[in-house]
């Protein structure tokens, strides 16, 4: 531990502790708690049973009651630690009447003891309520939502990469009449977020019969101006001589795009691909409008619908929130530096 702190605290320059150093590490540790804390709390909570979730104040770790199978009883009985004038001992509860519990000693099942519930605490151990994760997939439609989300994410990303890169290729490597007009149109649409055209877009989607269809979610999002800009900017750095060499090599324009420019744009395509995956996975407002039948819900919409029900089943919702979070966290863990340099370089989000 001290080696970890020595590593984290070692400053490259300076010897004593300046007040700015104090502020720095204060802020950083505050950051760790505030930024990571909530997600960590979510994960811990997602493993708690409904009864535990209702507890206040909450425990940090998920617990489950120890149970024991006692002779003469069909179901396993929960164990409690009882402390009264007779000393401290572990008993199993048979039933509870008012403030009095009827309990048995697991070793001596014949004798019922009456214990005031104020004199006992549940005997618990750290345990994970995996059922929170299993049930939504079995009893609810989460498998379906997950499938829908994956479909939307994958298809939208593939279409985005293909159409954006084709357009970026035309806009970066060809001189043609109207190129500036096209660029200007693309630029102008940077100003029109989806939230401004919700109503007419909805009517178009309905008119072409894509309401309640995953394609209705996918299509309006794939022609991103940001993607075109990002790819075009990258393609501009590819020397024209390469394309000319390919033309001399008897390559068609399509081959030049597919075999020369596209492979060389791979780093930018990767960045756009990662972002597209995150965007489409996280999309909420538009799917919320287009999808009104449960069979076509994406994870985000499904999750919000469950959380909006009168009888909120937090134990399931927390677990499914974690599931929804997992792909993004994986992307983050593996591609963190790739993403952060991507944002710093382009201001893309």
């Amino acid at each position: 531990m001290s080696r970890v702190s020595a590593f984290l605290f070692r400053r490259r320059g300076g010897k004593g502790w300046h007040w700015t150093d104090v502020v720095t590490f204060g802020w950083l540790f505050f950051g760790v708690i505030v930024m990571f804390g909530p997600a960590l709390w979510l994960i811990m909570s997602s493993f708690k049973s409904p009864a535990q979730l209702a507890e206040f104040p909450p425990t940090a770790l998920p617990y489950e009651s120890r149970t024991v199978v006692v002779e003469g009883y069909d179901k396993p009985l929960p164990l409690f630690i009882v402390t009264d004038e007779a000393g401290t001992r572990t008993l199993a509860e048979v039933r509870r009447v008012g403030t009095t519990a009827q309990m048995v000693d697991p070793a001596n099942s014949g004798e019922i003891q009456r214990v005031n519930i104020a004199n006992r605490v549940p005997d618990r151990q750290v345990g994970f309520a995996w059922d929170n994760y299993v049930q939504p997939f079995l009893a609810f439609d989460f498998m379906l939502y997950l499938k829908n989300s994956v479909f939307v994410t994958v298809v939208a990303t593939l279409i985005t990469l293909l159409t954006n890169s084709m357009a970026a290729f035309a806009l970066s490597k060809y001189e043609f009449r109207g190129r500036n007009a096209v660029m200007l149109t693309v630029l102008a649409t940077l100003m029109i977020p989806l939230s401004v055209i919700l109503v007419p877009l909805y009517s178009i989607i309905s008119a072409v019969g894509l309401f309640n269809s995953l394609w209705g979610v996918i299509l309006p999002t794939v022609a991103t101006p940001t993607g075109i800009f990002l790819l075009r900017q990258y393609m501009l750095t590819i020397p024209d001589e390469l394309l000319e060499a390919a033309r001399m090599d008897h390559a068609s324009e399509w081959q030049i795009y597919w075999r020369i420019v596209l492979p060389l744009t791979a780093p930018a395509l990767a960045v756009l691909g990662i972002f597209s995956v995150v965007w489409r996975w996280n999309d909420f407002l538009w799917p919320l409008i287009v999808l009104s039948r449960k069979e076509v819900y994406t994870l985000q919409v499904g999750l919000n619908t469950y959380a909006g029900e009168l009888n909120v089943q937090w134990h399931f919702i927390l677990a499914m929130t974690v599931v929804t979070m997992i792909p993004v966290v994986i992307v983050f863990l593996f591609l963190q530096r790739f993403i952060t340099t991507g944002i710093a370089g382009s201001g893309l989000k």
Partner: peptide, 29 residues
Amino acid sequence: SAADRGLAMVFQSYALYPHMSVRQNMAFG
């Protein structure tokens, strides 16, 4: 078009396809 003239060109920057091996560069055309 350039492709149909039967000529070959060596460019100032060489314009070798950076993502292909030497063999693939020569085979492409």
